[in-house]
Design a protein around this nucleic acid. Structure first.
Lengths: 255, 255
DNA sequence: CGCTGGCATATGTCGAACATTTCGACAAGG
DNA sequence: CCTTGTCGAAATGTTCGACATATGCCAGCG
């Protein structure tokens, strides 16, 4: 017999549990999380395991360990939101503050048309397959239940669609950036109950984007991506303080 | 008396030492790094400390730990190059393969004009101070020795200049992205022995960019940033396979 | 021939002890 | 009264040794 009371579960992840509490506001920037010994007691783990998990939070820039004093939650701007694990937690446990989400959204509105453009230039047959599969998933989901059964399936396909386009750029930076955009994509989808706007219309915009990439027409892809973003954003009555459509619109019109 | 033979040095960082060997090619993707026990012996550390440091490499996506088998170096595309620590190592120990550096450079050429544009819209007085201080550092360095004494000082100011512009966007994503561009900036500066082109001319381009941001003229900042990048790139006879100047040039001309 | 069981190896976890750093309290001294 | 030095409590950092678990290999057996 082990000393652990529950031999079934693999191991409780202290990092995840703590991250959940931090993200939900139980511990805020400046606060100190419980001592290592207390965490050991809470999760029935050894200090080694606890410290190992805590290390992950340190690497993510979420907490700062002060020798002999404790572990302090760092300020939001210091969090490494470009870390895939951090954005994973973001998708699960809401954003720490809405401001971050809005900034990520603004970033998307700025760059995604470019990404679509680059994808149209570099996409291979393999990339197109991935894009098309995601698109078909979105379509079938809509066909099945007119809307979507639980929101999960459709959002998964939607995310896969956008991520596939990022990967089609064949640029490692863009590809990895797709991870951090997942919380934003998910937020948009969940907030704007897709049925709010016309689902078929949204699907048609996505199709147009896909076809532009397939036909290798960068400028069409650029505009199609703008349309997709604008459609989604307006569907939930969302407005970005400034640069509503990124710099692109301005550039296109002024010149 | 301690059990350690060298009480002077703080502690050897296994993660850093291993990263150096991995980045320099001693261990390549697919290879297995030495066992934990061997690493303990090599660095005269305990397994706990070694494992703690190894955890950092895992979080960075550089190695993958297979229980009961060993720690394997992951493929380059799986490395989390958006991690600040990874790019820090990149700047110190050259890139694992030139392809990654070129992709990062391509990314810069694509987005930096945008960043400059956004900075011109959102920069505060505080941001302008940071930009100006970096610029003055570049200038004084050139004035002092006509070129630069060791390349370190000038490159530091150059990096600070670009980073300050990223931060001036007041967008957390752009701000954090500035970290990953540091290796690229450093590479450009070091490769293109600044004296190769006209230093004064390069400085003038930077000044133009700074002034455009100060005057809050986004479109001028956009073009000034393009000029800076083009100047640096052409100075070292560097050519990017496609999209030499990003999508921007194409957009500006066609429309 | 294929499956299965055990064995070796290396990582994963555990527990206790000691070292080091930090902060705060308290007393001596200016 | 304020400053300063020292001590001690508290928490993190490090070390050691042992056991648990997962993986791969190979021999033995049906």
């Amino acid at each position: 017999m082990k000393s652990k009371q529950s031999p079934s579960r693999k191991r409780p992840c202290v990092a995840e549990a703590l991250a959940k509490e931090i993200f939900s506001g139980t511990y805020q920037p400046g606060d100190f999380v419980p001592r290592e010994v207390d965490l050991c007691e809470r999760f029935a783990l050894n200090r080694s395991a606890v410290r190992s998990d805590l290390r992950q939070l340190v690497d993510a820039g979420i907490i700062e360990r002060i020798s002999g004093h404790g572990s302090k939650v760092r300020e939001y701007p210091e969090w490494n939101i470009l870390d895939a694990q951090v954005t994973e937690w973001m998708t699960r446990y809401a954003a720490p503050n809405p401001g971050v989400q809005r900034e990520i959204l603004a970033f998307r509105l700025d760059v995604e048309p470019y990404v679509a453009m680059t994808a149209a230039k570099h996409a291979t047959a393999h990339d197109l397959v991935a894009i098309e599969e995601a698109f078909n998933g979105m379509g079938s989901d809509l066909d099945d239940t007119t809307v979507n059964r639980d929101g999960r399936l459709h959002s998964d396909y939607d995310i896969a669609f956008h991520v596939a386009i990022f990967k089609a750029t064949h640029n490692i930076v863009w590809s990895q950036l797709s991870h951090i955009l997942r919380p934003s994509i998910l937020l948009l989808i969940e907030t704007s109950n897709v049925s709010a706007s016309d689902p078929a219309e949204s699907l048609e915009r996505h199709r147009s984007l896909m076809e532009s990439i397939r036909a290798r027409r960068p400028r069409d892809a650029f505009r199609a991506s703008q349309a997709v973003l604008a459609g989604t954003a307006s569907a939930l009555g969302l407005e970005i303080p400034d640069t509503p459509l990124g710099y692109s619109a301005e550039l296109l019109s002024e010149t």
